[in-house]
């Protein structure tokens, strides 16, 4: 960020800043920081893989994001309302049942990598958003791809 330059130029020999202007700048910066801290918690979700979620004691109001692979053959569509679906997200031996209502993205299906967001209540993950990952790799989707999302390498 270019803060370095501004500070050094302000520390120059001549500095005459209009008070109202200075206050204006100050207000903008403070309110930006305030907005950031205020919105960050409200708009963020804790990211978990199925194995972490299974062993995690959640608070019902805690917004979570779950990433993993859709277990083959686990997708169940309600017969009376086809928008209501249930499926299992798995990672190795850990499995979480997810319920979701809405249209699904293109790639959604068996073995697709999905990210769902919502709340984990009584062993069921109730999702309100469903995203699929668009892989650019030619290799079959492997567990490493999910793991690479944890950004461990940096």
């Amino acid at each position: 960020m270019p803060a370095g330059g501004s500070e050094s130029s302000m520390s120059g020999p001549i500095k005459q800043f209009n008070k109202r202007l200075l206050i204006g700048i100050f207000v903008i910066i403070i309110s930006t920081i305030y907005l950031i801290t205020l919105s960050l918690d409200a708009a963020s979700a804790i990211y978990m893989t199925p194995s972490e979620l299974v062993s995690y004691t959640t608070k019902p109001e805690e917004r979570l994001r779950l990433g993993g692979m859709v277990q083959a053959g686990s997708i169940l569509q309600q017969s009376d309302n086809k928008l209501e679906i249930e499926f299992t997200v798995q990672e190795n031996d850990s499995r979480v049942r997810v319920e979701y209502m809405g249209a699904t993205p293109d790639i959604f299906g068996d073995n697709a990598i999905v990210f769902v967001e919502g709340y984990y209540i009584n062993g069921i993950f109730s999702a309100d958003t469903l995203l699929t990952r668009h892989p650019d790799t030619m290799e079959p989707l492997s567990q490493e791809i999910i793991d690479s999302d944890s950004n461990d390498s940096y």
């Binding site: 930006t32 708009a43 963020s44 990211y47």
Partner: peptide, 18 residues
């Protein structure tokens, strides 16, 4: 800390007023 994802509402709330 825990792994966090930041969603679109964050950017809308902060950048919208700006």
């Amino acid at each position: 800390n825990q792994r966090i994802t930041v969603g679109a509402p964050f950017y809308e709330k902060v950048n919208g007023p700006l």
